[in-house]
Design a protein around this nucleic acid. Structure first.
Lengths: 351, 351
DNA sequence: TCCTTATGTTGCAACGTTGCATGCAGCGTT
DNA sequence: AACGCTGCATGCAACGTTGCAACATAAGGA
């Protein structure tokens, strides 16, 4: 155990309360006293006990991030940016992973952070909006991704439908005629796949293309292996596509690999476009055209949402008056951040 | 605020203590009482308050992982495995990122988790063993990576010298004669680069190759961009290598990209070998030969170390008798896990 | 009958912190 | 001289939980 306020107080010859005042930078402390206390703090290497703080004051300075997988590059990059944004508020971001397991997701969002974090940011994989609402009056929550929050929870994301339409439109503009989509997920309710397939279909329809269900390939995850599997299925299916829009860069990299293994030249025989703009795509050969969400802005906005709610009643132990706390809660925000299409080698014009 | 034991007790018509007994599965509770309490727990959606638990009982069931960067694939994959291993002990793993900033590393390891986690796992970037020792009697710590723990801290890693020698030996065995190394970091003390360059030199010497400092290219980070930069430097330097051993897969992927941009064919003109076995390497074209540490085993061993130390005195609030706690502390372990060389297309024989 | 034992249940205290109220000087004003 | 004010320091209580010890009740043995 480290030193407590009590230990420091004894050493400096003052009361516990005074040490607390020094630690928290309260102004009414005599310079000489402050100096003595600070020396004692230093000597004993005092570190505030976050558990006690959270328990007493209702805040710990810790924010939780709950994501399906840390080892996916997209979430990794996002987590990294969120850590940095959190730092600007003086908060520490703690990341946890659910593997997409609904039970695990519920457990973490509900309670396991056990009121130890002051706020939560999450990108749910399998939880429905109903599940999320059920959390009710726990700590503030910010939702990332395509999941529809029904206006009840702060929510930050890109316009996935529009982005998917742009990506598909780009492929059409290259003169491609058989444009496949990899990443359909009929069984999931988190919205990502649905919105992207919607944008894809919109763009095809706008260009007067027929709807060919055989070109929409389902996957079970958004990983490279699934992208490769889907691509092989398309290539073995006889009537191969001349372009493919993948709902994630990982799917695209898997598809790319499968296409090259199949002897195709990209982009000559097949144009490939992804989604997410992960670093791998920039260094792949050929480098990957993709939809780039403004991840840094997503991170900033997510933390701004939290900051806004945490500046209010503090919602912690102190507040027992539920109605008052509920009364001035600002309405849920719906923030759409910018994205842009980054054209690289995998969809370069036929040359 | 969620419901507390007090609220549940009031509803079930029993004492707070009895509710606690039910929650913690203490045996001496009458079946009928247990049933009533459980119903109240369910109705009020009780979740234990980790802050209070940690404060009172000295443990929270939370483990911290402190790493330089979450968005590096190697750490992402490792973090993911650690989360899973932690689950087997009923622990929740929380990840934090330091960006390699020494101040940030110190802050996190020292105290910011604020005695909120029961144990820490870390792979330090810039902290020296001396810094790590200074932490003294805080929560148990397990070190990952090449940093030398001087036998004072539990430590899990692969034999990096041996692994680097094997990788270099493999390139030699292909008949390559000018074998470069990318990833030297003269200014860092964390040991990774030092050990790998040592293994590289050992293998060259064993094969009777001359030592050519021009072939050892330094980098500032282990990222793709640095790998590409280093490769370009080698290629522009006149006397190009015919093989390169990179100290991370990310460096290797950057080097690969730069070599392809330069018009080289891999592996015909240049064989490329990495280190870490991240998923990107498996899907790159050509796929990347690499040293694969047994990451799952690293994760298992790291948690086994923690479990071993946590089973003891509990080291928490209860133990004030420092000497007793220190007395039976087991000696620091030094665990070396297996690695293997995975040969893929980037070093296939000349055909 | 009384004492012991086993089985359930409970009250008290404490973990480290901070909100609130209060105490106590010293000083300037009336 | 009495008053209020300001600046500084402190004591008490409480956040939700669990270790400890004690208590109540019933069952069993002498």
């Amino acid at each position: 155990m480290g030193a407590s306020l009590k230990d420091v107080a004894a050493r400096a010859g003052v009361s516990v309360r005074t040490v607390s005042n020094v630690v928290n930078d309260f102004p009414l402390v005599a310079p000489e006293t402050r100096r003595r206390v600070q020396q004692a703090l230093e000597e004993l290497q005092y570190r505030p006990n976050a558990a006690a703080r959270r328990l007493r004051a209702g805040r710990s300075g810790l924010i939780g991030l709950v994501i399906p997988e840390i080892d996916s590059p997209y979430f990794g990059e996002l987590a990294s940016l969120l850590v940095q944004s959190a730092q600007e508020y003086g908060w520490t971001l703690l990341v946890d992973q659910t593997n997409g397991d609904p039970e695990h997701e519920r457990r973490l969002l509900d309670g396991l952070p056990g009121q130890i974090v002051d706020g939560l940011i999450t990108s749910p994989w399998s939880l429905s909006p109903a599940d999320l609402q059920r959390r009710a009056d726990a700590v503030p929550l910010v939702l990332l991704g395509e999941q529809d929050a029904a206006g009840l929870i702060d929510h930050v994301s890109v316009d996935s439908v529009q982005a998917a339409a742009e990506a598909t439109g780009h492929l059409i503009g290259l003169g491609r005629r058989r444009i496949a989509a990899i990443g359909v997920q009929p069984d999931l309710t988190n919205g990502t796949a649905q919105q992207r397939v919607t944008g894809y279909r919109q763009a095809l329809r706008a260009a007067g293309f027929p709807h060919d269900p055989a070109l929409e390939v389902p996957v079970t995850t958004l990983h490279r292996a699934e992208g490769a599997r889907a691509m092989r299925r398309l290539l073995d299916g006889g009537h191969a596509p001349d372009a493919v829009f993948c709902f994630s860069d990982q799917l695209a990299l898997g598809a790319l690999r499968a296409a090259l293994e199949h002897g195709l030249t990209v982009p000559r025989d097949l144009a490939v476009c992804g989604f997410d703009d992960i670093e791998d795509g920039r260094y792949a050969t050929p480098s990957l055209t993709t939809v780039a969400p403004d991840k840094a802005e997503i991170a900033r906005q997510a933390l701004a949402c939290l900051a806004d709610r945490l500046r209010r009643p503090a919602s912690g132990a102190a507040v027992r008056d539920e109605s008052a706390a509920r009364g001035d809660a600002p309405p849920a925000r719906r923030i759409v951040v910018a994205h842009r299409l980054v054209v690289r080698e995998s969809t370069a014009g036929r040359s």
